[in-house]
């Protein structure tokens, strides 16, 4: 599943190939966001809110279906990160509180992580990520 960070990175590379002087600042300006925020997003260092995914997705020309995939991908990323939390609790409400996601969004993300073999619920208290997020 391609997430928005990958799409942004690929689009930036594409534009730089077309114009070697095309900078991250220019890319951020074209996306109507701040270059430092964009830099953090590309380095996977910050959470992407639903609103930001919608705005960046629209600026990239993504379809509503592609934006929906980006939303799901970001939620999966957050849930996967929580599975590595030192005080992890196998409890969707706890995960929702820590990730800021709705309970149903946690469970949908959980379902896809298991389906894609990126997360295994090994025991009632042990969840293991099977590949890097």
């Amino acid at each position: 599943m391609t997430d928005l960070r990958n799409r942004l990175g690929a689009e930036f590379v594409r534009r730089r190939r077309a114009n070697a002087r095309y900078s991250l600042r220019a890319f951020a300006r074209d996306l109507r966001t701040h270059h430092s925020a964009l830099s953090r997003i590309l380095r996977a260092g910050s959470r992407l809110s639903d609103a930001r995914i919608h705005s960046l997705g629209r600026a990239l020309g993504l379809t509503p279906a592609e934006i929906a995939v980006s939303l799901l991908s970001e939620r999966m990323r957050r849930v996967l990160a929580i599975a590595r939390h030192p005080r992890f609790r196998a409890d969707s409400r706890w995960i929702a509180a820590l990730t800021g996601l709705r309970l149903d969004d946690v469970n949908v993300a959980l379902h896809y992580l298991i389906f894609q073999r990126r997360l295994a619920l090994v025991s009632p208290t042990l969840w293991t990520s099977e590949q890097p997020s």
Binding site: A90, D91, I114, F115, A120, L121, V122, S123, P124
Partner: peptide, 11 residues
């Protein structure tokens, strides 16, 4: 297999 063996929190 669509969803592999999964141990749910409620056992």
């Amino acid at each position: 297999v669509i969803v592999p063996r999964t141990a749910l929190p409620d056992r």
